[in-house]
Amino acid sequence: MNRRIAYIASNTFREAVRDRVLYNLIAFALLLSGAAILVGQISIEIEKLVVINLGLTAVSLFGVVIAIFIGIGLVSKEIEKRTLYTVLSRPVRRWEFIVGKFLGLAGTLVVNTFFMAIGVFLALFYVSHKFVKADALILIALYFIILEFLIVCSLSLLFSSFSSPLLSAVFAFSLFVVGSFAEDLRNFAGMAHGISRWLATAAAYLVPNLSAFNVISSIAHEQPVAGQLILHNTLYALFYATMALSGAVLIFEHRDLK
């Protein structure tokens, strides 16, 4: 990897750590241990199901919130505070800055997810006292969650490259919500007629299909995930994130830093 991108990514990661972003892990740990103790007391059969569902959903939501709230400030905050001036006046290309920022945020989320995953497995061990082979499926769900983060990060960065942090947050969060129901939107497009069919179809394919990344429920029920879905989701996430990042680069390359 280009060294300058690595330096920018590393600095972005350091910023997140110094700004105490990883403190969310404490809230996550409290939530999960509380839930595990509570569920262990009130149920016998479904405690594992509840812990996996709750744990993975929390991993996803905590990560998405971090991705949006850090991602929306990655570029706009640097312009507003003028910290960019002393970076871009060096031999750093604008696209390198965007890609470095993206990788730094993605790295932060991967590290965050790693620690949360340990928490999920510990809670699981607490309620079931053992691990079974099917528990390895949780790793696939975590992988999909990380792919989802890549998409959300790239979208936040895209909005951050031309909009204010507040508007960027609204745009990114709206797309996350709509994207989580993308399958329903596609079904609706299939049933609609005339111009609304065209509009719904266009919207359904434009918004990120995040519902395809949600396999939490099926994994909690120990249902296997098709290899084809893993491949499809990987390619889709990489393609979508690349497109969104390209858009961010295109906008940022032409922007005056007043």
């Binding site: 350091r14 910023e15 110094r18 700004d19 003028r82 910290t83 001036y85 006046s89």
Partner: peptide
């Protein structure tokens, strides 16, 4: 080398 007017840097460093 460039010194901007009223420079502001990454204050966590």
């Amino acid at each position: 080398g460039f010194l901007p007017e009223q420079p502001y840097f990454y204050d966590y460093l």
